[in-house]
Structures are given as C-alpha cells and as structure tokens.
Write a protein that binds this DNA or RNA. Structure first.
Lengths: 342, 342
DNA sequence: TATTATTGCTTAATCGTTTAAGCTTATATT
DNA sequence: AATATAAGCTTAAACGATTAAGCAATAATA
C-alpha cells in the first residue's frame, strides 16, 4: 500500500495535480479554483488521509523547516531541558528539531554537523565543545545560519546567547564571602573553553574584590574524561591543605554530582565542614540532605531566544550578529547558609 | 553562494550528471566508468566540497535513513539515556534519529507521529503513553514499521521490547520482605498503562506470596498532572494510617523524586522510619544521604535491541512480531537494608 | 457587436538525485 | 572482413511537490 500522493487525489478528482496543490495549500483564491472543485478535492484528500511529503516540498522550496540542535552532552539535565525548550519553541515557529549530542567531543560534533547539513537543516543551534572553533568558523564562512547557545568564542564574530558566566561565578563567590566563608575553593574542568575561563575569572575576582588573596591550590582543574577520580583527588587536596577550604564552588553540574557523592562518602558535613555553591541545576540538588545552593541559568529564556534569533536569521530579518548575555540567578539554599563562627 | 550539486560537478568535468552519480556512489565498476574520468570527478567533488542532498536522495529512493523516536518524557533521565543509546546505535546502523517527547500526552504524541510521517521517517521507536493505543493500532493498520519500547499494549500484536515490570516489582517487594519489612506501601500513577498495572501486580504478588495480606490503603495512585501535592498527601496517609507502612516502593523515578523531597522535609529517617525501593535510576539516588535501592532497567540493551529490531523490520528480515521482556536488576543500597528489630 | 476581463482549469519546468536503456566507438572473435 | 562484445559515455524518466505561464470558455464593458 503505497503512500497517498497529490497525483492520487488528482486522479480521483479528474483534475491536474496543480489544482490539488493550490487547494490544499489554501491558495484557491489567488489561483481562482472553483468552489465546488475545491470542496471535492478537500474531501478526497480527507478520505484518502493524505499526508504531504515534506521531502518533496523541501526539495522544491529549499527549506526543510528543520533546526539542528547540537548539544555538548545530552545526559546533563541542563542540556536535556534546553533540548525540551528548544523543541517546544521551534514547534511554535513551525520547525522540527533534530537533536545530536557531541558528548564534548569535537570530532563527533563535526560529524553531526556534516550529517545534518546533508539533511539540509535550515540552521543550527549549537552548544559548542572544546576545539570546535574551526567548525564554527567554517559555518560562518559557508554562510550557514546558526546561533551559539550558552558557550561562545570571543574571537569569532557570531550570534550567540549565553549565560554571563563571569557574573554568575562572581555572584556565587560574593555570596559565600558575604555569608562568612573565607577560604573558597573551586573545582573546574581543564578546558580551553571560554565559558570555563569566565567562571574561573569570576570566582577569582570575587576573592580579590573582597580582599582575599587567591591561593593557587584552591583552584583545581580536572579532566572531563577522568572526572570521578580526579574530583576525589581534588577534594582530598582541598580539605587537607594547610589552609583547607571552608567552601567550594563546583563549576559544573557534573563536577558537583561527583563531588557531592564523594563528600557524602567522606561523611563531611555540608555546610558545617564545607559550604557548597554549584553551577547547573537539577532535581538532584533538592534531594541532597542539605539542599544545594546553585546558580540557575535562565534555561527557558536562553532556549527561546536562541530559537527566535535563529528564526529571524533564517528570515533575514536581522543581519548584524546579535550577542546576548543573560544573568544567572543565585538560588540560595542551606548548603551556603551563613557560617556559624567557631 | 548556492550549494554544490551534482550538476556543478558534471559541468566542471564536462560530463553528464549520471556519470558523476555513478562515481560518487562507488558504482564505477558496474557502470564502466573510465579510471581517469572517475579520478577527475572525485577530485572535482573534493575541490568543491560536495555534500550530497539527502532530500533528493531520499525522495528518489523512498528511504530517509531516519528513525523517529517518541519518548514519553525526555526530562526523565531514564528516557534521556534511552535517547542517547538509541542515537548511538542508530548511527552505527546508518540512521539518524529525530527525537520527540510526548510529555505523557496522547495528543502531543499523535502530533509528533504525524509530523514525522510527513517527514518520511522510515520507522518509529515509541515509548507510548496513556490513551495512545489507537495511534499504535493505526500504525499497524498503515503498515508503518515501529517498535514499542518499555511499554506495550497486550491487546495489540506489535513488536516490543520491554522491561518485565511485573518481575521487577515482585523482586522489589520480595527484597523488602526478605529484609524484614512487613507493611509495604506503593505509590503509583493513576494510569491505564499496562506497565503500571504490571508493577502494581508484582508488588501485590510479592505481599501475598509471602503471606502478607495486601491492604487497600497501602496502595496510593496519584495523577501525573498534580504529582507534587498528591504524592505529599499519599505519604501523609501512608505514615499516619493505623497500620503505618515501614517501607515504600515508588513505581517511577518521578514519584520517587517528589516523594523523597517530601520525606526529607518531614525529617523522616530512611530506612529507619521508612525503607525505600524505587523504579528508575539516576544520579539523584546516589546523592541522597542514604543511597536509594532501585530497580535498574537494562537501558543499554533495551535501546540497542529496539534499534536492531526496527532495522531488521525495515530490511524485512523478520516478519513475525518479536516480543521481548527483559529483567530489571535490583540494586540494593542502604535505603532498604535489613530492618533492625525494635 | 467587438473587445477586454475574469474564471477555471492545464501544461510543463523545476528542485537534486538515481538508474534503466540507448548510443557510439573501439576491441575481440570468428 | 564481417560480426559480436565491451568500454565509456549520454539521455531521459522518475521520486512528489510547487508555481509561472498559457489556454478556453464565459462574463463584463464599451
């Protein structure tokens, strides 16, 4: 049982496919189709349960009404939620989304781009990963429309919509200091990504801005590929230093999950022994015996704006690169409550 | 700068597009293309950075090499991980995946199916939701290839690969009883879905199989749409009953998250006041002060097998519906450790 | 009444591929 | 030398839609 095409309807109605096309696309007025005929065609289409073939439509029109969404890591709930928002917003604008996860791997990211380009997506929304700057530059050179989401390359003039990672980290640091913590550590990824640098810069500026001199051994950088072991080692060092930290900022959700697990194992008391502030957000933070203070990135706005920007680009409404930074909100919970002086 | 097509290459090489097509598809032998010409064509394709248009290919071939994956809820980490597995496995088989989330809503599910059918996906992998049986039956009637994942309709003869929900719940119940718990409650969804019934049946059979008579007030069923409040109410009732429960099985991950949050608020001691076993799996369970015992569904196998089944169906290797049930593994943690007798 | 407009439809090209069938030459076989 | 085979290419139709252009028949206008 082959699929129903315009031709089938045309045959049954004894007319040309052109007429059917006009009617089913609501162009009966402009194209002066007779009322009875229009009704007849619509009825037959209904009867046969006609579903237009978007491949053919797209081939003809040069538009697929499809957006490629490249995520850095779909198993991260932040990105999973981004995906959801983007999907909904895209649908509202008449687009379908094809999601791919690069798993923080530039090669995989490149593969995804290629596959989706072959499938003629109209544009991309990209949460880029390390070493993907060349790919991004290539998209620029080829005039393929895209918007970077949450991570961007300051050296490349692109549209982007991102959290203000610097300000967020600054807020997190200031919050801890305001609540009486003085020796604040940070665990971040060993990564050349700009957003990671920004988070670190914010953290350091919070310290120096409050006349606390930054200690090199307070900042630990771990490899994404060996996160579990390295986070443990980092925490061990942080708490056993001669100036052990009394508070800790996790630069990402994944780091926090691993870190908190280990802190549990060590039977450390949060925030008594160690106050915590983390980037990212997830149900997991609520389940911790002591709810975790986190920097809430404006997922909804980020996702919606990304889609809006891209759609505008696709319609050529806007030409100049739009670059937007959004504030993260510090959600203060028990894990960073004011320090009880000893 | 228009995209490079076969025609462009053909023009530059002074040959017909047919020849170019043969060469770039590796059919130069069958089609007796001269060696030099083949080399020349390949070189030009390289130079122009030719990327074939899959729309045109698909239109011609009738195959898109695309799988539609309909999830019940992408914000559930179980399904997010399923998505990841399916994506990887599909890629390995030369397929791209388009993911959609029905958010447990039959109308949305129907919309997704329609959109993806219009986009000519070759087949579906579906985690179906309540009231979607008609849609599924329609797919059967229209001979659209699909595989149900983790949830199925016993009344419809389809391919499916699912967790054995009954056995899993039975295991969970037996485990609690073996560890000394006698008054075991369950919080489940108010849903007509078969897998939910199976989980409840397993729970009840665990009780009766161990000569514990099931109490109606031990089983609480809540609405998906009002989960937070209803879970609280359910827990209130369960612990304040005249025969209060000493253990609780959450029938899904979402229920567990909400329940555990509330149990935290109530300052109940797990497992002292209340032992816990939950379906689903997530990092969140590890972060709980008392790691949660859960029934681990074989995500990897489920996802991979689903893809394999579908691909076989698409290649018409198999005709008869394949129906597979897989065992969940009970991962025993502290939340259900042997009861300390009072 | 002759001309122009309008109405209601069809024709045919097009999007980028694939592929069966055909057409020249050159080479092999008798 | 006459014929068959093979090599190397081209032609053209097809996939399913869209849409500019064109053609008759009817209605409106002068």
């Amino acid at each position: 049982m082959r699929k129903v095409s315009l031709k089938d309807i045309a045959q049954k109605a004894q007319v040309s496919t052109a007429l059917v096309s006009y009617v089913l696309n609501g162009k009966e007025k402009e194209s002066r189709v007779g009322e009875e005929m229009a009704a007849k065609i619509r009825q037959i289409a209904e009867e046969l349960n006609y579903q237009p073939n978007y491949l053919a439509k797209s081939l003809r029109s040069g538009k697929t009404q499809t957006i490629g969404l490249i995520l850095a890591d779909i198993s991260n709930p932040f990105f999973a939620n981004v995906a959801r928002i983007v999907e909904d917003e895209a649908k509202r604008n008449g687009y379908t989304v094809i999601i791919g996860s690069s798993d923080e791997n530039a090669d995989k990211s490149k593969d995804l781009l290629d596959v989706l380009i072959k499938r003629q997506v109209d544009g991309f929304i990209i949460v880029s990963c390390e070493d993907s700057d060349e790919q991004v530059q290539e998209l620029v050179d080829k005039h393929i429309p895209f918007v970077l989401l949450d991570r961007y390359f300051p050296a490349i003039a692109t549209d982007f919509i991102s959290t203000d990672h610097y300000a967020a980290a600054l807020d997190g640091g200031n919050h801890l200091i305001a609540n009486g913590y003085q020796r604040i550590g940070m665990i971040a990824y060993e990564s050349a990504m700009f957003h990671m640098d920004e988070r670190i810069r914010g953290y350091r500026d919070a310290l120096t801005g409050n006349h606390i001199s930054f200690q090199t051994e307070w900042l630990k950088r771990v490899q994404f590929t060996n996160i579990e072991l390295e986070v443990k080692a980092a925490i061990d060092e942080l708490i056993s230093a001669k100036e052990p930290v009394d508070a800790l900022i996790f630069a990402t959700y994944g780091l926090a999950i691993n870190g908190l697990k280990y802190i549990n194992e060590l039977r450390l008391n949060v925030p008594g022994d160690l106050a915590i502030v983390s980037f990212g957000q997830a149900e997991a933070f609520d389940l911790y015996y002591c709810p975790i203070t986190y920097l809430r990135q404006p997922i909804g706005l980020l996702g919606q704006t990304a889609v809006r920007l891209l759609v505008e680009k696709l319609n050529e409404i806007q030409k100049e690169p739009t670059q937007i930074l959004m504030k993260a909100e510090l959600v203060a919970r028990e894990s960073s409550k004011p320090k009880i002086s000893v």
